[in-house]
């Protein structure tokens, strides 16, 4: 029981640390008017910290896994916002569905073919 509790405390503490990176990222974004979202700035800061070993990976591994495992839950409050735009699914907006799909196929097909070509070339080059 107490080890269970410790585990949850650890996850909460690690999420607080991740939140700290998010806040610093947001602060840097607004201060320097960066074109990148504050959360992405925070991600880069953490990545640099991990690479330079300023932040031991154990400090964030469990909190990160907990958040990433339940990523779908975190989207829900925002996706429910669709209820304010239900008219989207009638009339002209509906044409955006095939447009998004077409664009997705363009990205998927080209990226897939390029990735396969480059990886094969590397294997043969050896």
């Amino acid at each position: 029981m107490s080890s269970q509790l410790n585990k949850y405390m650890l996850i909460v503490l690690q999420i607080v640390l991740l939140f700290g990176f998010y806040l610093v990222g947001g602060f840097l974004q607004t201060t320097f008017a960066l074109p990148v979202p504050g959360s992405v700035v925070g991600m880069l800061l953490l990545l640099i910290g991990l690479y330079l070993k300023w932040i031991p990976v154990q400090w964030i591994s469990q909190g990160s896994s907990a958040l990433l495992n339940h990523l779908p839950l975190l989207f829900v409050p925002v996706t429910v916002g669709i209820m304010q735009h239900l008219d989207f699914f009638s009339g002209k907006s509906l044409w955006l569905v095939p447009i998004v799909l077409l664009s997705t196929w363009i990205v998927m097909g080209t990226t897939g073919l390029l990735g396969q070509f480059l990886a094969n070339r590397k294997e043969w080059g050896k």
Binding site: I15, L18, F19, F21, Y22, G25, G26, P37, G38, S39, V40, G42, M43, L44, L46, L47, L50, Y51, V57, I60, S61, G63, S64, S65, L67, L68, L71, L73, L74, F75, V76, P77, V78, V80
Partner: peptide
């Protein structure tokens, strides 16, 4: 819902973890 939404930012920061791994 905003209490859940508040975790989205830290979740993006957490993407650094799989990148590092």
């Amino acid at each position: 819902g905003k209490w859940i939404d508040a975790l989205l930012g830290p979740a993006i920061v957490a993407l650094a973890f799989p990148l590092y791994q």
